[in-house]
């Protein structure tokens, strides 16, 4: 009996060895026949009007079957001025650097379509496509159809999307200075001096202030014109500037669009939709670089995120704004 067990065990080990010793010989993969294509989306984060949606469109056909003649991209909403397709095909070299080689004429964009016609005899190329998001696409969805045509008359197509375009707007690098260009309009996404602020009095939602007061920490501040005179600290507001707002201080919310730093964090429409500033004050003192504020205007028309890009001890700062129209 015991001997039988030993025999069975040996047999199993033998079978196991036979299995593991099977060697598969490497064979070069054979390319797909016909014209093939593929697309990846290179840009990340919310799709903002004025920003680019970037794609890399790859197309290839076996050398024996022909060459690529043209590539075309059609968007469901026409791109803004600045929409184009690269005339260079990119590959990544051994150092990880993208190298471009011209393969086509300059792209022609007409209406919703962008076309490039190849000038170099090529059977494989990767072209970048940059779709500049137009204002009219805000809150809508946009879809793209990529297609390539080969000299043998074959075509290949690839659909991408739909992508929802954010409703929010953005203004970058607004310079504010203490007691001068210190009146900020969220509606206009602009900074005014006292004279211009008086002309846009009903649209001024924020005042920038810098105070270096011994014994307290005041520093750089953003406040609604309607805040108490104590926090305005002697600043005389232009006639008619009296809007209120609700403000909440935030630290280290370094939105990538606004901060343009390495952090992959984005403020999106949904953040504004879910924002609740109930019970928040109408001022924020001691703001530092890379901090910010959430804000809602008194008429509840706008919600905004104001990011502080930089502050200077001489009483100036650089801010960037994302704004969401609620109503």
């Amino acid at each position: 009996m015991q001997r039988n067990y030993i025999h069975i065990a040996l047999l199993m080990v033998f079978v196991l060895f036979l299995n593991s010793c099977k060697e598969e010989e490497y064979a070069l993969p054979s390319p797909k026949s016909g014209l093939n294509n593929d697309v990846i989306k290179r840009s990340i984060g919310p799709n903002l009007a004025g920003q680019n949606l970037e794609f890399a469109y790859a197309m290839a056909i076996p050398d024996a079957e022909g060459k690529i003649v043209s590539a075309r991209v059609e968007a469901t909403i026409a791109g803004a001025s600045g929409t184009y397709m690269e005339k260079r095909s990119f590959y990544t070299n051994s150092s990880g650097v993208d190298v471009g080689i011209q393969v086509a004429d300059t792209a022609i964009t007409e209406g919703n379509a962008t076309v490039v016609n190849f000038t170099r005899d090529t059977c494989a190329a990767t072209l970048r496509y940059f779709y500049k998001i137009p204002d009219e696409a805000k809150g809508k969805e946009v879809t793209f159809t990529f297609s390539a045509t080969a000299s043998n008359g074959k075509t290949a197509t690839y659909k991408m999307g739909p992508y929802t375009v954010a409703k929010m707007d953005m203004a970058l690098d607004l310079a504010v200075t203490n007691n001068a260009n210190c009146y900020i309009s969220i509606e206009n996404m602009a900074v005014y001096n006292a004279t211009d602020a008086a002309l846009n009095a009903d649209k001024i939602d924020l005042v920038y202030l810098y105070r270096n007061i011994t014994g307290i920490t005041f520093g750089h501040a953003l406040m609604a014109p309607a805040t108490s005179a104590e926090y305005l600290d002697g600043l005389v507001l232009p006639a008619g500037v009296s809007n209120d707002a609700q403000i909440k201080k935030v630290w280290a919310l370094r939105d990538r669009h606004l901060a343009r730093l390495q952090y992959g964090v984005y403020v999106d429409d949904m953040d504004f939709q879910k924002l609740s500033l109930e019970g928040s004050p109408n001022y924020a003192l001691n703001l530092k670089a890379e901090s910010g504020i959430w804000l809602e205007t008194a008429n509840k028309n706008y919600r905004a995120y104001v990011y502080v890009n930089a502050v200077n001890a001489n009483g100036s700062a650089r801010i960037s704004i994302k704004r969401y129209l609620v109503n």
Partner: peptide, 9 residues
């Protein structure tokens, strides 16, 4: 607390 601290939150 610092001057101007929002005591409600």
């Amino acid at each position: 607390v610092f001057y101007g601290t929002d005591l409600k939150n």
